[in-house]
């Protein structure tokens, strides 16, 4: 069950900090811009500036550092693989170690760690976005961002609604999974021991009821939406209308400054 508690994505951390109060559109746009800058940046100095900016945002957001770092756990494997591959395969720069068949060059070490660093910043910036923005606000922002694309046949509202529903039901399904898991454990089920095939098979008593309940929920939800005359996005107004504030302007300005500095260095 510890597995189920480690999903940071979409785990909104409620708060009233400056970062929380930003308009979700601003946050989405800035996160996107940050990622672009991150990929353009080449020098260690630019990365340091970007890392500093990230650290500043984390501090401002008042989200416990532990929670932010927890988002990195799933990519630990990829991180170590990136570093190891670069360190052992790259042939650039000065030779540092030469032992038997192992040759390590300075270029590989630098590149490996830079890439890993980039990945860390990438994940950090996106988890800060999801930690400080409620899923609903985020999909609202996505819907508005996609709206201009409607002209080309992109169903912006429908996509946003699907995302809202999916996000809304992640915790519900996790809770349900935990409940069913417990019920089967109470009947002596064993989800942990045995070979791969046996373990995959032992998941059936968990997955089948979970699927059945997901379909039942989907059916009930569709019925409830129809009962309230849902008919898609055409002419639909919103209860909470997003509005930019002065805060968003400041945030954009700070961010532009950081981006310019990072790219200039």
């Amino acid at each position: 069950m510890s597995m189920l508690q480690n999903v940071t994505l979409g785990q909104y951390f409620p708060g009233t900090s400056v970062v929380h109060r930003l308009d979700p559109r601003t946050k989405l746009g800035l996160a996107l811009a940050y990622i672009i800058v991150l990929f353009i940046a080449r020098t260690g100095l630019s990365y340091s500036v970007l890392a500093l900016a990230s650290a500043g945002i984390v501090l401002l957001s008042e989200v416990p550092i532990k929670l932010v770092l927890r988002g990195l756990r799933p990519i630990l494997m990829i991180l170590s693989l990136t570093v190891v591959l670069h360190v052992f395969t790259s042939r650039e720069g000065v030779e540092l170690v030469s032992f038997w068949f192992i040759r390590i060059y300075s270029g590989g070490v630098i590149q490996g760690f830079m890439l890993a660093f980039r990945l860390v910043l990438l994940v950090l910036s996106t988890s800060i976005l999801t930690l400080t923005t409620s899923p609903i606000a985020l999909t609202d922002a996505i819907e508005l961002a996609l709206r201009p694309l409607r002209r080309f046949g992109v169903p912006a509202h429908e996509l946003a609604m699907m995302m809202t529903i999916a996000l809304r039901f992640i915790p519900t399904l996790l809770e349900e999974a935990e409940k069913i898991m417990k019920a089967q454990l109470a009947r002596g089920a064993d989800f942990e021991s045995g070979g791969l095939l046996k373990r995959a098979k032992s998941l059936l008593p968990l997955l089948i009821p979970l699927f059945i309940s997901a379909f039942r929920r989907a059916d009930e939800l569709a019925m409830a939406m129809e009962a309230r005359c849902y008919r898609g996005g055409e002419g639909r107004t919103k209860y909470k209308v997003l509005a930019y504030s002065r805060l968003d302007l400041y945030a954009a300005m700070c961010f532009t400054a950081v981006g310019v500095v990072a790219l200039a260095l």
């Binding site: 349900e176 409940k179 069913i180 417990k182 019920a183 089967q184 454990l185 109470a186 009947r187 002596g188 064993d190 059936l204 008593p205 089948i208 009821p209 059945i212 309940s213």
Partner: peptide, 20 residues
Amino acid sequence: RPLRQMVGLVFQFAEHQLFA
């Protein structure tokens, strides 16, 4: 496991655990 055999627990809405 022996404990769970001795103490049987029927959950709320237990029919949601049926799978076979």
